[in-house]
Design a binder for these strands. Structure first.
Length: 573
RNA sequence: CGGGGCGUAGCGCAGCUCGGAAGCGCACCUGCUUUGGGAGCAGGGGGUCGCUGGUUCAAAUCCAGUCGCCCCGACCA
């Protein structure tokens, strides 16, 4: 393997912070010459970025192969007709980029490949003897996201590892799913990332289980909940928390009180001198053409994902004032008592509380001592509240923490949604045709690369984990204009490359200072400095990026090679 | 899609309030001197001020529209 000469490579670095970037990973990718933007959420990978991406891909490939995955490559362009069959031409909506080919056929760019892979399975899988099967690819996806952000954290065109498994029944999917789960943990760990697997909302997909792999990061765009005690973790949409019931109080008689100008829970609670947890909050939504009246304890917020699941509705949006008035409720003073013309969803926090303050359905008035069951009824009682930081864990009673994170992977028990829609069946052991049971598993490769940088950088630049570093060692010649040091550095680079290392030789005619700064910016694990000072003493300096530790070693090719390899081994352990 | 910000040389920015010769730093090119932590001197090249229209004797600057990018939110199979 040959080494790369920087002077003939394409590796532009920036001294200044780019104005367009906020996230550390985004700034570093631009400054260290990994990526360049073309349009919103669409990037070119420069040679160095592409190298790093391929390192990540190689790890993903190894781990997928290790759990029996067979790599294939499906098309980017799909006939829209296939998407119409599963209903996702409409459901995937605006993220699907659509166009016509010259014959006027409707086409889409694939945002994911359930349709295509299921179509393939329909044609090729006939018998239970062909199962189970895991197919995966590492391929370009396009999703016309409403908003890209954070460099490679959320883009429109991206590289994704998407895998799809096929099983004869749910039991076999249940058996295989944990293997993928473990493979995912290994992939992220090998990339130097400690991820948190969180239970994800299986939502409208109707599956039986789903996990997201989150990297905790203040710059993450997702929110998840983690228990300090038992390790329970779930994404915000699905997280459950204990709600202390307080049913000891005796029921008191309802009493109307004047609360002029108190249109928020905080104002009411303050005016009446009660904690917000002793109030009932009314929140209105419109779903599937009807108005929904949701009642939660005043100190809680409605979790719209949970509510949508309870209602079985996909199109949840806040109700208008007119919607609210149509139910007979008075905005700001809404009461669940005597409401008609709306479905009433009561959070279980309300069912577990006594003598609450609620609206009186009369401008400027509230009611004291309102009790669920006695004073009002519900269409549904369910958990529709958002878990909060500091809440108690339902499982162990420990403390729940709300954290931000970057979602690196998502695995999903799909069931038969796609196989049924596309009639992908096989003959089981009894000779009956049954739909294939499927799982799907995704990792955003570029996002994973961005996450590596979020987790591995310092003030001066990137600090690559050895496993995904675009090069293992950077050989810097401080005076490349002089023939002997350059020739010597080239022989060092050559020797290191022969030893199986990825070597970048900085033979640019730049000042020593620039080379040292760029070396830190690039973050290659080991820097070998070849300069006149060291050479006079018969030494080459090795510098470890992680902690800046410098070791002079004898300037002999074999000594340098072993020393570099020792340092790299120490890196990866 | 709602809110906010920004478009002036490759990058970072000033100039715009109050219209009157397009600037600064870095980078780049040439030469010389430097060469172990972003060197010095001298010389030089590079800009339809995002775009369109309007006001004006005169527009980077004022007005209208439009496009693009970034951030917050909504959304996120």
């Amino acid at each position: 393997m040959a080494y790369v000469r920087w002077s003939r490579y394409f590796l532009p670095t920036w001294k200044e912070e780019p104005a367009e970037a906020d996230l550390p990973s985004h700034k570093l990718m631009l400054r260290a010459g990994l990526i360049r933007p073309l349009a919103a959420g669409i990037y070119t990978y420069l040679p160095l970025g592409w190298r790093a991406l391929r390192k990540v891909e190689a790890i993903v490939r190894e781990e997928m192969d290790a759990i029996g995955g067979a790599e294939l490559h499906m098309p980017v362009v799909h006939p829209a007709e296939l998407w119409a069959k599963t209903g996702r031409l409409v459901d995937a909506g605006e993220i699907l980029i659509r166009f016509q080919d010259r014959a006027g056929r409707e086409m889409v760019l694939g945002p994911t490949h359930e349709e295509v892979v299921t179509d393939l399975a329909r044609r090729e899988i006939q018998s239970w003897r062909q199962l189970p099967l895991m197919l995966y690819q590492i391929q370009t996806k396009f999703r016309d996201e409403p908003r890209s952000r954070g460099g490679l954290v959320r883009v429109r065109e991206f590289t994704m590892k998407d895998g799809y498994s096929f099983h004869e029944d749910l039991a076999d999917l249940d058996r295989y799913y944990p293997e993928v789960y473990q493979a995912y943990l290994r992939i992220f760990r090998r990339c130097g990332l400690a991820t948190v697997p969180v239970e994800a909302d299986s939502g409208m997909m109707g599956g039986t289980g789903s996990h997201e792999f989150m990297l905790a990061s203040e710059h993450g765009e997702d929110t998840f909940v983690r228990c300090e005690g038992c390790g329970y973790a779930a994404n915000r949409e699905g997280a459950v928390a204990a709600k202390d019931a307080d049913l000891d109080e005796a029921l008191r008689a309802v009493e109307e009180v004047a609360t002029p100008g108190c249109e928020t829970i905080e104002a009411v609670a303050r005016a009446l001198g009660v904690p917000t947890s002793k109030t009932a909050k009314a929140v209105f939504y419109r779903a599937a053409g009807e108005v929904v009246f949701v009642v939660v304890r005043g100190d809680l917020e409605v979790n719209e994902a949970k509510l949508a699941r309870v209602l079985g509705a996909g199109d949840l949006r806040p109700a208008t004032e007119d919607d609210i008035r149509a139910t007979g409720a008075v905005p700001g003073y809404a009461s669940p008592i005597g409401v008609t013309g709306a479905r009433v969803v009561v959070d279980d926090s309300i069912a577990g509380a006594r003598n609450l303050v609620a609206g009186a359905n009369r401008e400027g008035f509230h009611l004291r001592n309102v009790n669920f069951g006695r004073d009002f009824q519900a269409s549904v009682v369910a958990d529709v509240a958002l878990a909060r930081d500091g809440d108690r864990c339902l499982r162990c009673g420990g403390t729940l923490r709300v954290e931000r994170g970057i979602e690196l992977g998502h695995i999903f028990k799909l069931g038969t949604k796609y196989s049924q829609a596309l009639e992908a069946t096989f003959l089981d052991r009894e000779g009956r045709a049954r739909p294939l049971v499927m799982g799907c598993y995704g990792i955003g490769i570029g996002r994973l690369l961005a996450a590596v940088l979020e987790a591995h950088h310092d003030r001066d630049g990137i600090v690559w984990p050895g496993s995904v570093a675009p090069f293992h060692v950077l050989v810097a010649v401080l005076n490349p204009k002089e023939p002997e040091p350059l020739a010597y550095a080239a022989s060092v680079a050559e020797h290191l490359a022969q030893a199986g290392l990825d070597v970048l030789l900085d033979d640019r005619e730049r000042t020593a200072g620039e080379k040292f700064h760029d070396a830190k910016l690039l973050g290659i694990p080991v820097l070998a400095v070849i300069g006149p000072r060291g050479l006079r003493k018969g030494e080459v300096d090795l510098e470890r990026r992680r902690d800046g530790a410098r070791t002079p070693v004898r300037a002999s090719l074999d000594v340098i090679a072993t020393s570099v390899q020792d340092m790299l081994r120490a890196e990866s352990s």
